[in-house]
Amino acid sequence: MKLRLKHSFGGFTLDMEMTAGAGITALFGRSGAGKSTVINAVAGLLRPDEGLLEIDGETLMDTARGIHIPPHKRRFGAVFQDARLFPHLNVAQNLDFGTRYAPRGVKTPRADVIDLLGLSPLLTRAPATLSGGEKQRVALGRALLSAPRMLLMDEPLASLDGARKQEILPYLEHLRDGPLGLRIIYVSHAVDEITRLADTLVLLKEGRIATQGPLRDVMADPAAVPLLGVREAGAVIEAEVISHADDGLSQLRISAGMLELPGVQAAVGSRVRLRIMAQDVLLATQRPEGLSALNVLPVTVQSIRQGTGPGVAVALQAGTDILLARITRRAVTTLGLHEGAQVFAVFQATTVAPESIGH
């Protein structure tokens, strides 16, 4: 998908250009950054002042040529913060409603969607009897059964509490990695969601794209820390599950060495995605001894970015991965840190929460 937008209203101007390939492209930004405006323009619900939208070789919007394909002909599925299920229909009937909008001759197997989202036990139930997470799964299934060529998800988990969010995230991971091969635009202001789900990350700030690229690259960029928030910044790396110990800790292999972490629910031999928070990473010039922290990795200082306050973001080369550490200016001076310095990154096993481990 190729998108270019320029639109002004109420003193706000959106001016951006992006592409979205396979997998999940996440739009992240604080409230008012322009995320929902982008989604509305892509869906056809907003006619921008200037814009171009192309997907699979077809032009759906081109203001210069007067092209504006209406929403119902764009073949986009949509899932919003509110599930918007029909209260007078049960789950099966809500799902069947989605099939009405599938193009003739194009069909998404109903049984596959039901199995993918674990909806079999819910088919005869009314929406009023469902939890928030269950409602969102039904809404997602209805959207998939319309056989969309792209899925638009606008803050789909924002109304859910932590437990319900953790309930639905694995289903979204299965959708990302499953056989449907859908292109998904995912809007959120929750960093934990995008680090679990996204392949590509687009950071919006005041109507403009501050940076975009593969999730791992953007999350490991010290320049992105102010946009993500200093308490939310952290690297995303992949690991292989090696073993599970009887004491609840699991051993994982990353490119820089071995890690010990709790709460890993993946099978031995599988690969998982870890989010390691910058504020949880300590740096040492010598390998520490006598610490309770189990994870110590040899790393090389790649860059040091100083903010406006006392904090400094340090990018660390850890094997083929990049970690981030957030320390103070004083610590940089005391440790004599500089680009190319060989140090050790240290963090406790319990700092990587189970919800920060994705499939």
Results as ranks from 00 to 15, higher is better:
Glu339Tyr: 05
Phe97Ile: 04
Gln212Lys: 12
Ala78Val: 15
Pro354Ile: 05
Asp217Asn: 14
Ala41Asp: 01
Asp192Gly: 13
Asp154Ser: 09
Tyr171Val: 08
Val191Asp: 04
Ile276Trp: 00
Thr300Pro: 10
Lys35Met: 06
Met219Leu: 15
Leu201Phe: 06
Phe347Met: 10
Gly263Asn: 10
Glu206Lys: 14
Val187Gly: 00
Arg142Val: 03
Leu169Met: 11
Leu261Met: 06
Leu172Arg: 01
Gly66Glu: 09
Thr320Asp: 14
Gln166Pro: 03
Gly162Lys: 12
Leu145Ala: 00
Asp56Trp: 01
Met16Phe: 11
Met150Val: 00
Ala325Thr: 04
Arg330Asp: 14
Ala92Tyr: 04
Gln136Phe: 00
Ile168Leu: 04
Ser270Phe: 09
Gly10Leu: 11
Thr211Met: 15
Leu249Gln: 14
Ser255Pro: 08
Met153Thr: 07
Gly105Thr: 00
Arg208Gly: 14
Lys205Asp: 15
Ala139Trp: 00
Arg183Gln: 12
Ala41Tyr: 03
Gly11Pro: 07
Ala163Arg: 14
Leu215Pro: 03
Lys135Cys: 09
Ser303Phe: 09
Leu27Pro: 04
Val42Arg: 00
Gly23Ala: 03
Glu193Ser: 06
Thr195Leu: 11
Arg4Met: 10
Ile24Ala: 06
Val312His: 08
Leu45Gly: 10
Arg329Pro: 02
Gln342Pro: 08
Ala313His: 00
Ala198Glu: 01
Val202Gly: 02
His68Glu: 11
Asp192Val: 10
Ala315Asp: 03
His72Gly: 10
Gly290Val: 08
Val38Cys: 11
Ala349Asn: 07
Val299Tyr: 05
Val312Ser: 04
Lys205Phe: 12
Ile276Val: 15
Pro298Ile: 02
Phe347Lys: 00
Thr13Val: 14
Glu54Asp: 05
Leu335Val: 03
